[in-house]
């Protein structure tokens, strides 16, 4: 039942992305409005898809590769839409839509089989750990998108050659604020996700959860990167190019962690 909905939302994401790209090229307001409406519709269909899958599977559908990536895509879409309340970031929709579509594409290649959960995974810490971590990753994704936009815009301003992006990208200040905003939400969520993971692992493996496996080391390093960036921003006022660069690097680490988790089967 849930799969046709996945296909439907995938199709609607395609349309939204196409509209966002058209808007990016011609900058017509009506097209942005349309793109946004279509994007909201896609996210809504996607939400229903996840809900139905939850009912079908009988557990939170964040266990298989398909489910994790699909949930990730949905989180990115929702985080993006949530910004509308506070402020708009000109043209960030185009970048986000492309990322969401890419994630959906990856998810659609993965096996959609609903796997029965092995008994040790049937803890309610799992959905908490997984969902919080993925939502954190979604905010960090947006921070990285903001970082890329910042670097593009900054390059044009520094080199004084004004090309394609100059008029289309928002101001440096807006992008820097986006970065700060996303990380100050994403980082605490990441911390909570990691703590939930720790408690869950303790439940499964008993008193010796701390294993020196690369996945966990990587997570700690990533956490330290974000923590360092937050610290420097608050104390020394690190911002702009440096913050954007670190955000992008740390985001690749996040992707690596998610990737390795999926490969190892959590």
């Amino acid at each position: 039942m849930s799969y046709p909905l996945f296909q439907a939302s995938f199709t609607v994401y395609c349309i939204a992305t196409a509209l966002y790209i058209i808007f990016f090229l011609n900058q017509k307001k009506q097209i942005r409005k349309a793109a946004r409406m279509v994007f909201i519709a896609a996210a809504f269909l996607h939400a229903v898809n996840i809900l139905l899958r939850y009912i079908e599977a009988g557990h939170t559908p964040i266990t298989s590769i398909h489910e994790v990536i699909s949930f990730f895509a949905w989180s990115v879409a929702c985080c993006h839409l949530s910004f509308r309340w506070r402020y708009t970031v000109k043209n960030s929709g185009t970048f986000t839509a492309v990322i969401v579509l890419l994630l959906m594409l990856i998810a659609s290649f993965a096996s959609r089989k609903i796997l029965p959960l092995p008994p040790e995974m049937q803890s309610w810490w799992l959905p908490v750990h997984a969902s919080v971590s993925i939502i954190a990753a979604a905010f960090l994704t947006l921070a990285a998108i903001g970082g890329v936009m910042y670097l593009l815009q900054e390059r044009e301003l520094k080199q004084k050659r004004f090309g394609f992006f100059f008029s289309r990208l928002p101001s440096l200040d807006t992008l820097d604020k986006l970065n700060q905003h996303c990380i100050s939400i994403g980082f605490p969520l990441m911390t909570v996700g990691m703590l939930a993971g720790y408690i869950w692992a303790r439940q499964i493996w008993g008193g010796r959860p701390w294993q020196w496996n690369p996945k966990i080391v990587m997570s700690v390093i990533t956490w330290l990167l974000y923590a360092g960036l937050m610290h420097q921003r608050f104390t020394l006022g690190w911002r702009g190019r440096r913050a954007a660069g670190i955000t992008i690097i740390a985001f690749f680490a996040v992707l690596l962690i998610i990737g390795s988790m999926l490969q190892e089967g959590l």
């Binding site: 815009q153 301003l157 928002p170 101001s171 440096l172 200040d173 604020k177």
Partner: peptide, 9 residues
């Protein structure tokens, strides 16, 4: 115009 691209507002 440039000021706006740097500072936003």
């Amino acid at each position: 115009e440039l000021g706006r691209k740097i500072f936003g507002d």
